[in-house]
Structure formats: C-alpha cells, structure tokens
C-alpha cells in the first residue's frame, strides 16, 4: 500500500517526465538528424544506423556558416556588453534614487518590452537603409540593445533593491568616494545579478531570427539563425537537412553549457525579477 505522500510524489514524477520528454524530443531529434548520413535521412529510424560527422565537417568547410558564427558571436557579445553596462547604470538609478519621472521611465521601458517586434521590422528596415546601417553589425546591435535593455533594467534593479542601502552609506562614512563605494562595495555584491542578466540578454540576441533575417542581406552581418535558412544542399536535388541540423546543434550547445553552469543563478535571477519587479 502506497502512502498518500508516495502517490503524490509518483504523480508529480510522471508529469515532470512527460514535460521533460516533450521538451527534449525535438532537441534529440535534431541531434540525431545531424549525425545521419544524407542517404539515410528519411529511413524512419530515430537513432542513426550509421553515425557520421560529415554534416559537421560540411558546415565548417564553407565560409557561409563560419562567417555567420563570427557575426553571431560578435553581435551578441557587443550587444550584451552595452545593454548590461547601460542597464546596470539605469537599474542602479531606478533602485536607488528618487527622481521626477521615474515611473514614466519604468513605464516606457516596459512599453518597449511589450511592443511586438514584428510590427517594427518594416520601419526599421527603411530607417536602417536610409541611415546606411542596413546589413551591418550596428544594424543588428542597436535593435538588440533596445529590446534587451528593459529586460536588463528589470532584472538588475531587482538585484540592486536586494542590496541594503545602508551599505553604501556605511562606505561613505568609512571615507569612500561615490565611485569607490560603487566599485568596492556595491559592484561585488551585484555581480551575480550582472552575470545572470548578461546571460539572459546574450541568449536573447543569440536566438533572434526575426531581426537577423529582416535587417541583413549578405554574409556581412547575417547571424547563424538567419544563415541556416540560406543553407543549400550540395545539389539542387538534395535537401540541406543534415547541415541545418548540425548547425542548430552547434549553436545550441554553448547556450546549454552556459545555462547548466549558471542554472541556480538564472533561476534566482528570474524569480527575483518576478517578485520584486
């Protein structure tokens, strides 16, 4: 006879397992496809009969993918850095200072976060062409920054609010200049929040497809998610399924490693933002 508690646990276990399977099957599928030989792609087996690295070798042989990878890394890193630096300053002000128009500022940033990006794509396309930043790194970095700043400000201000105000006063009384107080006392305490925010923003930039496909036209600034869509088979009769799968795995792995490493931090960061924001 199982106790009531035992039955509840089993029940939850089953539900959790279903959710995990639901989430993981597509990922496994892609991974399996990436290891299949093009001739066995449609043989109906989930697990490849013959394992091959050919798809991976293939995508790294042409500059189409490597160039896109460089673009992705460069654009995501730069956009993340700028968004986190600006977000840190803004969040500090939001959390610490009372100033006129604070509510308006918070409201505006929320508004930006709520704006459907798809509605901005065509105006941005036109604006960027006029400004001459269409199909450049800057052309992607700027919208990424804009859309990730609200996220950064929200998460970071939740972290800053957790730091007791008295610490900064104590540092001032101990003879610190405002800059020293920030550098020696506040920044070390805010570091976990900054790291969490950086990861969240990085994932957002890294995964974006909409802006990447709309605001680029050549390999000059095309990031991996967009570049994958331009993959072609080795002949016009061949589907590039294997290469697409391999490329998808390559860009997913770093994110998975990141998230595993900082898992606790990110969860804490998200809940902090949810409760305090």
């Amino acid at each position: 006879m199982m106790s009531h508690r035992g039955r509840t646990l089993t029940g939850w276990g089953v539900v959790n397992l279903l959710v995990i399977l639901y989430a993981l099957i597509p990922v496994c599928w892609i991974a399996a496809l990436s290891f299949k030989d093009p001739s066995t792609l449609t043989d109906g087996n989930f697990i490849p009969r013959e394992w091959t690295w050919a798809n991976y070798r293939g995508i790294f042989q042409t500059s189409e993918f490597t160039r896109a990878l460089v673009n992705s890394i460069g654009i995501a890193v730069i956009a993340t850095t700028i968004a986190v630096v600006l977000g840190t300053m803004a969040a500090y002000a939001v959390a610490r200072l009372r100033f006129p128009g604070k509510r308006v500022l918070i409201g505006m940033s929320l508004l930006i976060a709520m704006f459907p990006p798809i509605s901005l794509v065509s105006p941005l396309f036109n604006i960027e062409r006029v400004l001459g930043i269409f199909d450049t790194w800057a052309g992607l970095i700027i919208p990424y920054m804009t859309f990730s700043l609200p996220l950064a400000i929200y998460t970071l201000s939740a972290f800053f609010r957790e730091i007791p105000w008295d610490l900064e006063k104590a540092a001032k009384m101990d003879g610190a200049t405002p800059a020293q107080a920030f550098r020696l006392v506040i920044a070390p305490l805010a570091a976990p929040g900054v790291v969490t925010t950086a990861i969240l923003v990085f994932i957002f930039c890294w995964n974006d497809f909409l802006f990447a496909i709309s605001l680029t036209s050549t390999t000059a600034a095309r990031t991996v998610p967009a570049a994958i869509a331009f993959f072609t088979g080795s002949s016009q009769f061949q589907q590039p399924t294997g290469s697409i799968a391999a490329a998808a795995v390559v860009i997913t792995v770093p994110i998975v490693i990141f998230v595993l490493l900082f898992q606790r931090r990110i969860v804490a960061g998200l809940t902090a933002g949810a409760v305090k924001g």
Partner: peptide
C-alpha cells in the same frame, strides 16, 4: 563637506557590514 571629509564614524541599525 562630504561624509568622508568630516572624520566621523557611524554605527547603523542594520550594522551594514560588507557581506563579501
């Protein structure tokens, strides 16, 4: 004058010790 130029020390209700 800024607090640092007044040469006075303060003990806070929350103690405000630097946790790190």
């Amino acid at each position: 004058r800024a607090p640092k130029d007044r040469d006075i020390a303060m003990v806070f209700q929350s103690y405000a010790l630097y946790p790190h």
